[in-house]
Each structure stands twice: as structure tokens, then as C-alpha cells.
Design a protein around this nucleic acid. Sequence first.
DNA 1: AATTATTTTGCAAAAATTTTCAGGTTTGTG
DNA 2: CACAAACCTGAAAATTTTTGCAAAATAATT
Lengths: 249, 249
Amino acid sequence: MLKRERQAYILRKVNLHNKVLSSALCTEINVSEDTIRRDLQELAEEGKLIKVHGGALSHSFNEINYSTNGIYSQSEKKKIATKTITLLEEGMFVLTSGGTTILEFAKSLPLHLKATFISGSIPAVLEYIQHPNIEVIMIGDRISKNSKITVGSEAIHKINQMKPDLCILGTNAIDIEHGVTDGDWEVVQLKRAMVRASKKVACLAIAEKLNTVQPIQICDINKVDVLITELNPDADILQPFIKAGVQVL
Amino acid sequence: MLKRERQAYILRKVNLHNKVLSSALCTEINVSEDTIRRDLQELAEEGKLIKVHGGALSHSFNEINYSTNGIYSQSEKKKIATKTITLLEEGMFVLTSGGTTILEFAKSLPLHLKATFISGSIPAVLEYIQHPNIEVIMIGDRISKNSKITVGSEAIHKINQMKPDLCILGTNAIDIEHGVTDGDWEVVQLKRAMVRASKKVACLAIAEKLNTVQPIQICDINKVDVLITELNPDADILQPFIKAGVQVL
DNA sequence: AATTATTTTGCAAAAATTTTCAGGTTTGTG
DNA sequence: CACAAACCTGAAAATTTTTGCAAAATAATT
């Protein structure tokens, strides 16, 4: 990894989380703590961040706490993201939807992962292309303005031609009886195609989406291979899903 | 392998992945590291990439992290944007490239305009979808990390199936003799298809891009219907273009 | 086709940069 | 205060770059 690249990565991390720990960075990037320290020091000299004992802070830290940049229940989504990463393998083809949970996932992808990510979500793709080792494929078609995702028959057709190893769905409603459901007809069409095309399907959902139903069905619960929530897998609310044959993380 | 094609290969790789390692390139191309280094140095001198210890980075990668957020000669680009808007008509199908000039244009679209915009540029599309009356179509394919635009045969194929009323090109180099040229092989392929498919072609270029040439040609000057710069159309430098049959705004 | 000129490439030793390591010192915390 | 974690300093180790030069390849000329 190039020095410049590493520093850019650190800077991005600082701006994202408002702080970084030297110890965390050095295991993550796989260099000695000395190197990290020197990087932080150099970045501090350039005024890009503030060096503190044990790590560094972003400049905007003192200002308003805009870290909670509007994302609803961000910490839960971070937890989901971390679990989701365990599903990834080297060289995988991964198809993802959009949404804030997916976005959180996109931001926490491990640095050294080499894989191909396919998505119709503009915000998700914008995150993916920041990653040094991930190849990104955007699915084209008409864009749904409120979800910032490509929808339409062309997009669906394109998805049908693929056979991704894993499909990761941001989920708005999931229920044993009604399966995965959503409220936007066009997005549902797309997600249906995604589920159909993929070898394996993972649904990301914060707990409050469990056992809720939306008007239009994406797929039955038996199409879902993995369900990932912020809860511990032995939580009561998750047991019915496990009984239904879903792997719960 | 000739020097020229080797450098073209390197440049292509930088534009696509945002970085290259000298060590990786030399095993890949099967030349000594010295040769690669010399290539990178030459390309850096020509301003095509940024040489760093151990390899090279794309320009956009560096900008993102060195955060010189101010758009270069923004006021000129605003002026160009304003003129470009006069070309737009109700209900038009407009195909656009990416780039900062296009982005400025995207921001200044009149509120009432109803039209369909097609693009492979992620930043441009992000602007277009802010607009209440514009339908946006994203062209899908692999994403070039440097230019944040979709490139590849799928994208070209998609463009070939369309017949847009107007093609608006952000232009890096335009010259009477050599026409419109650019340095990024992948992007050139895409722009060629855009020009070929469209009924009318408009090139946006700030004055300093006039009478400059880049290595790869997109199209001859006679394919350009309209040239838009920040200058007054009766400026001396523009007269040759008018004589060549280009409408100058 | 052969010769000459020019460019390009590969090599090796030395220089520079970057990373790691080893030690002693400082800092934060209970 | 004690103790662990983080820091600093300087030097070694590893990697990349520079430099000059000769061999090889390419282009131009006879």
C-alpha cells in the first residue's frame, strides 16, 4: 500500500468517525504503530487533523456534533454492517441494494478485501468506488429520485443476466408469514430480480423492522438465507426466523 | 510492447483503479522496474498522473484527499452553463458526459424545464435527480474511479441504442485540425459513442482548452455542432471554429 | 542490406525514502 | 504511586529512486 493512499484512508476514517485510534489503524492496515504515528503526525502538521494521545481527532469534532449526520439509529446499523462483513469472501461478486444500512456497510468494508460490487444505488456506488481494491459495476436505467436507485426493465434485465455469489438487501419490512416486503413498487421489482438472480441472499434489518409488513412482497422468507440484525442471535424475537430455516447473525 | 502502448496501458490502469504500483506493473508488463519508473515519471511530467514513492496515483484521487474543494475557474464555467441552457427545449432527450463544467451546468438547470437527461457520470446524475421535473437515466457498466463515470462495452452498447436530441460534452481539448481529443482511453470510447448516437453535439470548453490536443481523438471538428466557451463569440480565437462551420455561443 | 544515429532498456552501485525495531521516557488512569 | 499504554529517539532493515553507462532495439540514412 502506498503511503499517500494510507494517509488518505486515515483521513477519510477520521472525517467519518470524528476520531481514530492508532492501535485500531495499525491492525487494520497491517503496519507498525510507528508508521501510523508518523502518518498522523504528518497529517496533523498539514492541518488535516488533530493529533491526540492514542490517536487523532477530526477538526470538526469541536464544532457541532454532526457525526450523527441524520442517519437514524446509526450505531445499530454499524453493528449490522460489521456482522455482514463476515459473509464476504475474496473475489466474490456481490449485488447490493441501497439504503442507509447498506451505506453504513459500504463504509466499513475491510481495506484489503478484493471483490466486485454491483449496485443500482448511487450513494452506495459512491462509497464503493472509494475502496482501493473493489471493482464497481453500476446497474443502469431510469432513476427513482427518492431512493436514488436505478429502476426499470433494463435494470432488471441486466440483473437477470448475472449470477452474483451474494445479494445484500437493505430491508424495510420482514416477517415470517409475509416474507420480505416493501412499499415502492419499482424498487420491489428490482429487489425481486436481485433475489432471484443471486446464489445467496442476506437481509439487513434493524430490529424494529422485524415482524412488520409493507404492501408489496419481494420474496418469501424461505428465499432468505441470512438475516442480520443488531440483536444477538439468541434474542427471542429472532427464534421464529431460525426455526424457519434462516441463518441469523 | 511499444513504449507508447505501455504508457497508454499504465494510464488506463491509473484512471480505472486510481492507483498503480511500480512493482505490480513491471511483472504485469514484463519489463524492468526502471522502465516503469521512467514511464511514470514521463506521464507525471505531462500531468497525466501523480508520481509517488512506489507507484502513482490518479489526479482525482489526490484531489479528493488534498481537498482543494474550489472548482477551477468556476465563474467561467458558470458562464458556460448559462449559455448552454439556451440549447435546451421542452421534452428533449439530452445525453451528457461528466466533468466539472457539466456539473456546473447541472446545477443551473431552470426549474421549470421538463426533459430527460441521460448520463454515465455519477456526480452529474446526482445533480440531475435534485431537479423536480427532469427524468434521469443512468447508463450502467464498470466504473472508472478517476472520472466517476461508467465505462465499458455495455455502456457503449446502451448508448448506441439511443437517439438523443442533444449531446453535451465536457471537453478537455478541442482543436480545428485534430477535433475533440482526450487522454483517457475508456472515456474516449464512451464519448465517441455519445457523439455518434446524438442528433446534435455541443462541446463545452473553457478558453484555455481551445487549440489544445490530447493523445486520443473523440471526433472531428465537423461533428461538433455547437461550441460553448466563456468568451464572447466574436473573440478572435473563436473565428476559425466559426469558419469551420461550428455554431459558437 | 548495411551502416549510422537515436532512442529505449536493463543493470549495478549509491543515495534517498520509508518502515520497523529496540531502548528509554512520558503520559493517563485507577 | 504503580502500571500499562503511548511516545520519542536513533539506528537498522527494507524498499524505492537516482545515476551513469553499456547493451539492445528502433529509426533513419546511405
